[in-house]
Each structure stands twice: as structure tokens, then as C-alpha cells.
Computed example of a mutant assay.
Amino acid sequence: MKRVIHGLILGSCLALTGGCSATGKSDTFTFTADMPPGFAYVAKVTYVPVPGQSCKLGRYNNVKQQFNREWWAEYKPDVEIEIHRTRKGCELVLNGIDLEINGVYGKDFGDSGGDSGFIAVRDYLDARDKGAFNAAGESEFSGQCQWLFRTIGPKRYITKILDCKSTDAQGNVTKGRPFAAYTLDQLPGKTVKLKIKLADEEEPFMGDTWVKVPGGWKRCLGDSFEDQDAFCNGNHKDFSTFRMPDGRDTCTIYPGCTENKELTP
């Protein structure tokens, strides 16, 4: 009931005055992110009709509000998100934020990878939710992303997949994607930050396809160079070259692209 009354008052105020509230408090909050170089996020903000309304919006009238949609061309880490908004006369309230975490590892347009995160808006929080604010009105949740490498195509071109996981207060990787949850009345005038760390080392995307050697990894040959899966299957003697994202095409050790025939014991 509290959420219904709260939403109706603020939603009406927003429609009439463009963002005021019955209490004079802000009806927006700031979302920002601290990410490694070459990383950016896209935020897709979802709204639903304020409880108690009968209005229904069609698919094209209730689109998600997006920030940093073209992140590769223009990126702003700090964005202001409305808690209430009006669409086609329908008063809407924030329901959640889908986060797309993107990273770039090469110069070509396709040399990038992405994973997801999420901010939930709930009526109440439980002990598992990360929704606390400090005295300055800031809340932070975190994650770690890791590049997973593999080869594709007839020339075994290196491509990478981005894998992002949530981390706890001590920085330990946990299950699930980066995530936080808040209640509506927590957010006005506050700042929510996503902090992403990049893992120190990359790992193969699929098991039993690379062999760890001094200085990096060697790609198993498989049945032949045309074998795209090329599982090792116990053969740690026959390897193949591969092509790096920067164009080097006679590499034998990843990531250094240097020759090293000595295997680890």
C-alpha cells in the first residue's frame, strides 16, 4: 500500500511539474560505473504503470529508456535516471535496470565482447540484496570480468568472450552476474555505482583445447588444421598456429605470440 500511494503522488507531480515530488525531494538518482579501460556499459531502464492504474501501453509506447546505446561512439559513465515518468498519459514507475557490460580487445569493430548485470527494484530487501547507502548517499556493487579466448575459422583467428561475475565485499568472485537491489524510497537523490575489475589472466573458453606451457597456452591441432573443435584428447605434442586480433598469423603461444616448445611438467 505504501508503494502504491508513494507512486501515485510522485507520478502525478512528475506529470504536472516535470520531476518534483510531494516532499520536495528529487525524483531521480545517478547511476555511474568504474570500469577498466576499453569498457563501457549500456543501461536499459524498465518502467511499469504505477499500481492502481488501468492504463496499458503497447510495445512501442513503453520502450525501455536506454543510456549509452552507441557506447562505442559516445559514452557517458554518469547518467541521471528518472524514478517516475509519464508516457501517453500513463504514469510509470521504475521497475528494474538491465545492464550490458561491454569490453574491447582489438581494433576491428567485432573485437569486443559483452555480458550482463541487473539492478532490481523491490518492495522490500532481504539479507542477500546489495542495497545499502553510506552517509554520502552512495551505494556500490561490484563484479569481475574475465576474457575467455578461443579460435574460429579456417585460419584459427583468436576471438574472445567476456564473462562477468558478481564479487563480494572482499572482492571474491561469487555466483551470478553483477547484481544489486533497492527499494523505490531508497533511490531519490542517491548515487549507485557499478565497479568492475578485470581478471589478471585470461583462460580458454573451452576445456581440453589448449595446453598450458611456459609463457602462455598452445592450441591443440586436433584431427587436422580444418578441425574447428580440435580437442586435445591427450595429444600434447601436435599443436597449430593461430592468428592474433592484431593480424599476426604465425603465432604458437597465446597471449605473447612467441615460440616456446617446452611444455610444463
Rank of each mutant, 00 (worst) to 15 (best):
C13F: 03
L99H: 09
I97V: 15
I101L: 12
D108G: 02
L263R: 15
D27Q: 12
A22T: 15
W71I: 07
I5Q: 15
F133G: 05
L8A: 11
L92V: 02
N233K: 12
K190A: 00
N172C: 00
A22H: 14
R150F: 00
V79Y: 02
N233C: 08
T258R: 15
C232K: 08
E202A: 02
L94R: 03
N235T: 10
W72T: 13
Q65S: 09
A199F: 01
G19W: 12
E202W: 03
K155S: 11
E80S: 12
A180T: 12
I97W: 03
Q170A: 05
D111T: 12
F179S: 06
K160V: 05
M244T: 14
V79N: 08
F149S: 01
V79K: 09
D238N: 15
L184W: 06
R69Q: 15
T23I: 07
D168R: 12
D108M: 07
P77S: 09
K2D: 14
K212N: 04
D238G: 06
K2E: 14
T28N: 11
S54V: 14
D108T: 10
G256Q: 10
K56W: 09
R219Q: 03
I196M: 14
P154L: 02
P255S: 03
C13S: 15
G24P: 04
D246H: 11
L187R: 06
D249G: 10
P214L: 02
W217N: 00
A199D: 14
L125K: 01
K2L: 11
